[in-house]
Measured scan of single mutants.
Amino acid sequence: LKTAGVNTTDKEMEVLHLRNVSFEDAGEYTCLAGNSIGLSHHSAWLTVLEALEERPAVMTSPLYLEIIIYCTGAFLISCMVGSVIVYKMKSGTKKSDFHSQMAVHKLAKSIPLRRQVTVSADSSASMNSGVLLVRPSRLSSSGTPMLAGVSEYELPEDPRWELPRDRLVLGKPLGEGCFGQVVLAEAIGLDKDKPNRVTKVAVKMLKSDATEKDLSDLISEMEMMKMIGKHKNIINLLGACTQDGPLYVIVEYASKGNLREYLQARRPPGLEYCYNPSHNPEEQLSSKDLVSCAYQVARGMEYLASKKCIHRDLAARNVLVTEDNVMKIADFGLARDIHHIDYYKKTTNGRLPVKWMAPEALFDRIYTHQSDVWSFGVLLWEIFTLGGSPYPGVPVEELFKLLKEGHRMDKPSNCTNELYMMMRDCWHAVPSQRPTFKQLVEDLDRIVALTSNQEYLDLSMPLDQYSPSFPDTRSSTCSSGEDSVFSHEPLPEEPCLPRHPAQLANGGLKRR
């Protein structure tokens, strides 16, 4: 031991701790050491302190810390799992109470259905409401065949629209698609105040090879029609059969078919879209009749726009005509997947739907009320060519290029400059510069009032120099000039209409 001194630092001082000593042992101690050379000694003081209470040693090893962490984590996880189980049990009790009230408590799974309603004014964004509309049932219905791709499903009954099956008599087919079909039928007692009145209706139903998605689409269309409500110039929902059998959606019946066929059937002799010497046209149409058709469609679209509904496929083929020549817009409630459109795929009647699409819908897939206005301009062109085919002879690839360059279709022969300028306004490259349906209704209403009933179509000018029955994407082998976009001569082996020498072909294109 070194004694503290003047020249001794703290580091040089050493402390020796002795245990089991008493206060009597306190004092100075000297350590002597010697050898043959000499003797040396050092002294140190022993200080006795009071004994401290002994405390248990605390484990601070890493293993002990890990044990604490794992135990704490396990406890927290157990609490979370327990909370989830309690929540599930409570929510399951509430669901079972709800389904027992709906009398569908025996169901095993559900079809996820979404009601898609486009509400954005400047995009294709949609509001999806995840309302459960249908659930599968283990119960089988008697007297009705089961669908191959869709098991029997039981829908919640809506008393406002439900019609008993025994009050619906199915008739002949009116048309069909890939998985759905429409048949003519007679409904008894659609009007609650007149329970014995028989009404001719159209009934939409699924085919035998339909899938769950097809069922989902049909129900979504029905729900959309319920929500949009009734208007004179749209196909209205009349009722539905949802209980004890396949789903039947009952809508208004339009006896004169779609507008395109309606116009073609009323072309003057010699100007029909397909040469037929025995062709006997229906009643002749006046200019006022054509303007009235456009006015009614505009009114229907104005109503749909007021309900925040974007059609996305407005064309003469999707406008139906009733016995009283009332125009009714159809298929506005269809669920369309705008992100998976095949631009080169034709519709069932051979038309390319892209020829009715606005550039922003075609290139950027942006659907708005103003893109519907563009389609309405093409529909106007169809009306005043009596069912002509837009951009005849123009392949899709060429159409993309022409639209980007600002080309537009030429004025039809039997169309006034004012109406043609309306078409051109609908085809404005900037969507915000196109008229609204409200403005179109006002303009067409004024034109109808000024147009005489006696103004019949000028038969001295050809209505349509093209054969719409030909595929639109076909290139002409005998077109006049180098560019078949601006002219389209008859093919030698097929009868077509004579070309008027002083008139540019109706399907020609102009640059805006």
Rank of each mutant, 00 (worst) to 15 (best):
D166V: 05
D166Y: 05
V169L: 14
V169G: 02
L170S: 03
K172R: 10
K172Q: 10
P173L: 10
G175A: 01
E176G: 04
E176V: 08
E176K: 12
G177C: 03
G177V: 01
C178G: 02
C178R: 03
F179S: 03
G180A: 07
Q181K: 04
V182M: 01
V182E: 01
V183G: 15
L184S: 15
A185T: 09
A187V: 13
A187D: 14
A187P: 15
I188L: 11
L190R: 14
K192T: 15
K192M: 13
K192E: 13
D193G: 11
K194E: 07
P195A: 09
R197C: 05
V198M: 12
T199S: 03
T199I: 13
K200I: 12
K200Q: 13
V201E: 04
A202D: 02
A202G: 08
A202P: 10
K204T: 05
K204R: 02
L206M: 06
S208A: 07
D209G: 05
T211K: 04
T211I: 02
T211R: 09
E212G: 12
K213R: 02
L215F: 07
L215W: 08
L215M: 07
S216A: 11
D217H: 06
D217E: 04
D217G: 04
D217V: 12
L218V: 05
S220L: 03
E221Q: 04
M222L: 14
M222T: 04
E223V: 13
E223D: 12
M224R: 01
M225I: 13
M225T: 02
K226E: 14
K226Q: 12
M227K: 07
I228T: 09
I228N: 15
I228S: 08
I228L: 15
K230M: 03
H231Y: 09
K232Q: 14
K232T: 13
N233D: 13
N233S: 13
N233T: 14
N236Y: 15
N236S: 15
L237P: 13
T242K: 10
T242P: 14
T242A: 06
Q243K: 07
D244V: 10
D244A: 06
G245A: 13
P246L: 11
L247M: 12
Y248D: 04
V249I: 14
V249G: 02
I250F: 04
I250L: 05
I250T: 09
E252Q: 15
E252D: 03
Y253C: 04
Y253N: 08
A254P: 00
A254T: 09
S255C: 12
S255T: 08
S255F: 12
K256R: 05
G257R: 07
G257A: 09
G257V: 01
N258Y: 00
L259Q: 00
R260W: 00
R260L: 02
Q264P: 01
R266P: 01
R266L: 03
R267T: 01
P269L: 15
P269Q: 05
G270R: 12
G270W: 09
L271P: 04
E272K: 13
C274Y: 07
C274G: 10
C274W: 14
Y275N: 05
Y275C: 09
N276T: 14
N276I: 06
N276K: 11
P277R: 10
P277H: 09
H279N: 04
H279Y: 07
N280T: 15
P281A: 11
E283A: 05
E283Q: 15
L285P: 07
L285I: 05
S286P: 07
S287Y: 15
K288N: 08
D289Y: 04
V291L: 06
V291E: 08
V291M: 10
Y295F: 06
Q296R: 02
Q296E: 13
Q296K: 08
V297A: 07
A298T: 01
A298V: 09
A298S: 09
E302Q: 06
E302A: 15
L304V: 15
A305V: 15
A305T: 14
S306Y: 15
S306C: 13
K307M: 12
K308R: 13
K308T: 04
K308E: 11
K308Q: 11
I310V: 03
R312Q: 00
D313A: 01
L314V: 09
A316S: 05
A316G: 01
A316V: 01
R317M: 01
V319F: 01
V319L: 01
V319A: 02
L320M: 09
L320R: 00
L320V: 10
V321A: 11
V321L: 09
D324Y: 10
D324E: 15
N325K: 07
N325H: 05
V326A: 03
M327L: 10
I329M: 12
A330V: 06
A330S: 13
D331H: 03
G333D: 01
L334V: 02
A335S: 04
A335P: 00
A335V: 01
D337H: 15
I338T: 08
H339D: 08
H340D: 06
I341N: 07
Y344F: 02
K345I: 02
T347K: 14
T348P: 02
N349S: 05
G350D: 02
L352M: 03
P353A: 01
V354M: 02
K355E: 02
K355Q: 02
W356R: 01
M357T: 12
A358G: 04
A358T: 01
P359R: 03
E360A: 03
A361T: 04
L362V: 03
F363Y: 11
D364N: 03
R365P: 03
R365G: 15
T368N: 13
T368P: 03
H369Y: 14
Q370P: 05
S371I: 03
D372E: 03
V373A: 03
V373M: 13
V373E: 07
S375Y: 12
F376C: 04
F376S: 02
G377V: 14
V378A: 03
V378M: 02
E382A: 01
E382V: 02
E382D: 04
I383N: 04
F384V: 10
F384Y: 15
T385S: 09
T385N: 08
L386Q: 11
L386M: 05
G387C: 03
G387A: 11
P390S: 02
Y391S: 03
P392A: 03
G393V: 02
G393A: 12
V394L: 11
V394E: 01
V396M: 11
E398V: 12
E398A: 09
F400L: 10
F400C: 14
K401M: 07
K401N: 10
L402R: 05
K404N: 10
E405V: 04
E405G: 06
E405A: 09
G406C: 00
G406A: 03
G406R: 01
H407N: 05
H407Q: 03
H407L: 04
R408L: 01
R408G: 00
D410V: 10
D410Y: 12
K411R: 08
K411Q: 10
S413T: 09
C415Y: 00
C415W: 00
T416I: 11
T416N: 05
T416S: 09
N417D: 09
E418G: 06
E418K: 13
Y420C: 00
Y420S: 06
M421R: 07
M422V: 09
M422K: 11
M423T: 00
R424L: 09
R424Q: 08
D425E: 04
C426F: 00
W427G: 00
W427S: 00
H428L: 05
A429T: 08
A429G: 06
V430L: 08
V430A: 05
P431A: 07
S432P: 03
S432L: 10
Q433R: 08
Q433H: 10
R434I: 00
F437S: 00
F437I: 10
K438M: 14
Q439P: 00
L440M: 05
L440Q: 01
L440V: 05
D443E: 07
L444M: 07
D445V: 12
R446H: 06
R446S: 08
I447T: 05
I447L: 12
A449G: 04
T451I: 14
T451N: 10
S452P: 13
N453I: 09
Q454L: 07
Q454P: 13
E455V: 07
E455A: 10
Y456S: 11
L457V: 10
D458E: 06
L459Q: 13
M461L: 06
P462A: 05
L463V: 09
L463P: 13
D464Y: 08
Q465E: 06
F470S: 09
P471R: 10
P471L: 10
P471H: 09
D472V: 07
T473N: 09
S476F: 10
T477R: 09
C478F: 13
S479T: 14
S479Y: 15
G481A: 15
G481E: 14
D483H: 15
S484A: 14
V485A: 15
V485I: 15
